[in-house]
Amino acid sequence: MITIENLTKVYGPKIAIADVSFQVNRGEVLGFLGPNGAGKTTTMKILTSFMPPTSGRVTVMGHDTVKDSILSRRFIGYLPENTPLYTDMRVKTFLKFVAGVKGVKKANVPSRIKKVIADFGLEEVKDAVIATLSKGFRQRVGLAQAMINDPPVLVLDEPTIGLDPRQIYEIRQLIKDLSGTRTIILSSHILPEVSQLCDRVAIINKGKIVAIDSPQSLKARLQDHTLIVIQVGSRQEEARKIVEKIEGVLSVSSSNSRFLNIETVKDRDLRPVMAEKIVEARIPLLEIVRKEMSLEEIFMELITEEAGAGA
C-alpha cells in the first residue's frame, strides 16, 4: 500500500530524517510516536507530496509521490498539523471546494458532503464561518475535508493536539470508526493514544526509526527487563552458571561466543553483585555493560509528557 525506501530529508545543515524505510499494509493503522522534532511531520509531508525528499522514494498504491504526485495525492486524505483551514469560508462551501479539487464527480458532491457532515457531527455548524468554530469543530472539519473523496489512505498529523479531554476522546472515537479497510497513518507524542488506536507503532527519534512493532510487543519488550551484557573471555559456561544463580536474573543467553546477554528485573541494578560473584570465582571479567535502550528513554519521555499535560 505505502512503501517508504531509504527516505532522507536534509534542511540545510540539519538532517530531519535519515535513511528511513518501512511499509504500511492495506487496512493497517500505523502510529508515529516520537518527541517533537523527531521527524514525524517531515515524513508525513513527504508522504503527501507537500515536499520532495532529498533522497529515497515513497510510493502510495504504487504511485511515486514525486513523479506521479497528482495520482498519488488522489489516494490520500491529509490533515496537516494544527489543522489549517480557509477560515473565511463557511463549512459547507469549504467542503464543496475540497470535493471539487479532489475530483469528486459532480453528481456525487452533495451526497458526499452530506455524508461527511453526518459522520463528523457537523450538522449544527455546517453554515457557520470556519473562523468562528471551536478547536474541536475545526478538527472535525479537518477530518471531513480529508475524507470527502473517501480516500483509501488517511494521514493525520497530531490529530488530537490542543484539544480538551472530551474532544480528544471524540476525535479518537472518530478515528477508530474510520479504520477498518482504510490505511491510516497518524502521529502523536502521546503513548496511550497510539497504543489505543494503532495496530503498529513506529518510534522515531532524531530522524531515525528506533523500533516498529505492535504496541503490545513493544511494551512487553520494554517493561519486563533490563539488559546487561558481560564479556568473560573463554570461561563463558562457568560464568553463566554463576550469573543464573543471582536473584533477579530472568534469563541468560549468549548471542555469540564472546558475550552473555542477561535479562534482569527492571527495578534493580545487578551489575555490582554480578561483578563481585564473577571475580570471586576468579573468572576474568573483561566487560560489563548495561545496554542503554533508546527506546525506553523515548517512552519515558513520552509517558512523562502525557502525565505532565494532565490529559
Binding site: 507530496s49 488522489r74 496537516p80 489549517p84 479539487v101
Partner: peptide, 14 residues
C-alpha cells in the same frame, strides 16, 4: 501564513 498552502499543495491539482 495560515498554513492552508499545505492543503492546497497536497490536493491532486498541479
Amino acid at each position: 501564513a495560515q498554513g492552508t498552502i499545505e492543503l492546497l499543495f497536497t490536493y491532486p491539482v498541479s
